[in-house]
């Protein structure tokens, strides 16, 4: 017993914490990099299809998103729904949505506005066709079918 006591009475070496700020900064900046600012909470399931001929969308500020897919909350059923901003909407609401998106941008940028369709791969084309017809009516011609990049040579 006395032996242990003798050792315990020794002073432990001081932990060097001078590099702690560096580590914290590193983590901070790492999280800053990987975090995407998302204004909306996606309420539908979106598993984008794969494609090889994808392009990167330039200028994120000039993109408005339309989400289509089955609701994540299963009590809302499995029928595909359209989500604009934060709520479920109908095809008829798309025109208004596009107008408000245009209003939110400076006038010079409005012709460059792209609509990105984020659609689940199991959605039927009927609803997508309806959306495209609405977009044509309001003159939002630039669209982007959101897809993930797939590796080439699949056969």
């Amino acid at each position: 017993m006395a032996r242990f006591k003798k050792e315990g009475s020794k002073e432990p070496p001081a932990l060097n914490t001078s590099s702690m700020p560096d580590i914290i900064f590193m983590m901070l900046i790492f999280f800053m990099m990987v975090t995407t600012m998302r204004e909306v909470t996606v309420k539908v399931r979106i598993k984008a299809p794969d494609a090889t001929e994808v392009q990167k969308l330039e200028k994120k500020a000039l993109v408005s998103y339309i989400y289509v897919g089955p609701p994540l909350q299963t009590k809302l059923g499995t029928e595909s729904r359209i989500q604009l901003n934060d709520s479920f909407r109908n095809v008829a609401d798309i025109a208004e949505f596009i107008f408000s998106e245009r209003e939110a941008r400076p006038e010079a940028d409005r012709p460059l506005l792209t609509t990105s369709l984020k659609v689940d791969k199991e959605v039927r084309m009927g609803i997508v066709t309806d959306i495209k017809q609405e977009l044509r009516k309001v003159g939002a011609f630039k669209i982007n079918y959101s897809t993930r990049k797939k590796a080439e040579a699949n056969d």
Binding site: V54, K56, L57, T114, S116, L135, A140, Y145
Partner: peptide, 8 residues
């Protein structure tokens, strides 16, 4: 965001 760009 990546995807296939089209013009309607």
């Amino acid at each position: 965001d990546t995807g296939i760009v089209r013009r309607l």
